[in-house]
Computed example of a mutant assay.
Amino acid sequence: MEANRSQNGIQLLLAAEQEAQHIVNGARTAKTARLKQAKEEAEKEIAEFRAQMEKEFQKKVAESSGDSGANVKRLEQETEAKIQHLKVEAARISNDVVQMLLRHVTTVKN
Rank of each mutant, 00 (worst) to 15 (best):
Q7P: 03
D67E: 14
R34N: 04
R5W: 02
R92T: 01
A91W: 02
E43D: 12
A90M: 11
I83D: 13
A90W: 07
L12R: 13
V72C: 04
I10L: 13
N95D: 13
Q84H: 13
A81Q: 15
S94L: 08
A3W: 08
K59A: 09
K44M: 02
L102F: 07
D96C: 04
S68C: 03
A3Y: 06
E45V: 01
T106V: 08
A33M: 04
G9F: 10
Q77L: 14
K73F: 07
E80T: 14
Q11D: 11
V88P: 01
H22W: 02
L14S: 08
R103F: 09
H22I: 07
G69L: 15
K36E: 07
I10V: 12
I23M: 06
I46W: 06
E54S: 05
E63F: 06
K109R: 14
H104D: 07
L101T: 05
E17A: 09
L13G: 02
E45H: 01
V108I: 08
V108L: 11
E43M: 08
Q77S: 12
L13T: 11
L75A: 15
T107N: 03
N25W: 02
Q99K: 15
I83H: 13
T107F: 03
Q11H: 07
R74G: 03
I10K: 07
N110A: 11
E78F: 09
K73P: 00
A51F: 01
V108P: 00
A90I: 15
I10Q: 07
G26P: 00
K82Q: 15
A81M: 13
G9S: 09
V108N: 08
G69I: 11
A42W: 03
A91S: 13
A91C: 09
K82L: 15
M100P: 00
T107E: 11
F49E: 05
R50S: 05
Q11P: 02
N4S: 07
N95K: 15
A33V: 08
E45L: 05
T107K: 08
A15H: 12
I46Y: 06
K109N: 11
M100G: 00
E63A: 03
R5E: 05
D67L: 13
E19P: 00
R28K: 10
K55N: 06
T79L: 14
V72H: 12
S6T: 12
E19H: 08
E17P: 00
H104L: 14
I23A: 07
A20M: 02
V24I: 06
L86K: 14
E56S: 03
Q37F: 09
I93C: 13
F57K: 02
K82G: 14
Q18V: 09
S64R: 12
A3T: 05
S68M: 10
